[in-house]
Computed example of a mutant assay.
Amino acid sequence: MPAPSEQFTYVGPDDIRAAVVRPGTTGRAVRSPVGLREWLDGAGPADREEPFTYVVDLTGTLLLAPRRSEHVACAGGGPVLAAGEITFAPREDGGWEVTEVSNQSTGYCPDPETSWPALAEALDRAGLARPRWFTQAVVFRHCPRCGERSLVKDGDFTCALCESPLPPRPVR
């Protein structure tokens, strides 16, 4: 049995949350290949040409929105089990597969190790083929000195803003 998933709360700017979150509105719940096809059929051609924004809500459901959407809007302002960007392609058997997936969400800064199990389970339940791991895993840290959210690049745990050391493990 997999370990319980960690919840990630929104850590991005409050003005973005206030501008984009609308009561009762979230991304499109995708629970099957048919549900994905229906959503893709309704998306504009430009939306289908780039990755989508995704979150996994607290019920373990995959929610999708166009890429230019904020993750916090896709989540309806609430906490998530996973968040990032995802690309799908049709399979010869009529199903769908994930061709690219990341945990790239500066609004939630999900840890790859703890968000992947929730995403993998949501994709499996929806019947969508997936890779064994993120095709791009992003490591986020909060700088204890300046409070900024930072991306760790090339294993360099240094804040890009104030050049202070970043913690080696996620701050919970």
Rank of each mutant, 00 (worst) to 15 (best):
D154N: 14
A73C: 12
A122S: 14
C74G: 11
L151G: 10
T87V: 15
G60D: 08
D156K: 12
H142P: 01
E70R: 15
P110I: 07
C146G: 10
G94Y: 07
R141S: 00
R145Y: 00
T114M: 02
V152H: 01
S102F: 04
L63F: 07
G84A: 14
E97A: 15
S164I: 00
L161V: 15
L119V: 09
G95K: 04
V152T: 07
W116Y: 08
D57H: 10
K153E: 13
G147E: 04
W133Y: 10
A160W: 03
T135L: 05
A73E: 04
A65V: 05
T114C: 06
P79N: 08
I86W: 01
Y108S: 07
G107L: 02
C74Y: 00
Y54M: 13
T99D: 06
C162S: 10
L64N: 06
E70G: 10
V72L: 07
R68N: 12
F134D: 01
G107Q: 04
L62M: 12
R68G: 14
E163Y: 11
E121C: 08
E97Y: 05
E70T: 12
G127Y: 05
P112W: 02
S69A: 15
R67K: 15
V101W: 01
E70H: 15
E121Q: 13
S164K: 00
C143L: 00
L123P: 02
C143G: 03
A137N: 05
T59N: 12
L151M: 13
V138K: 03
P90Y: 09
T59L: 11
D156I: 13
E148N: 14
R141G: 00
P165Y: 06
Y108M: 08
R132N: 07
V56E: 01
G155P: 01
V80H: 01
A65H: 03
R68P: 03
R145H: 07
L151I: 14
G84I: 00
T87P: 03
T59S: 15
Y108G: 05
R68D: 11
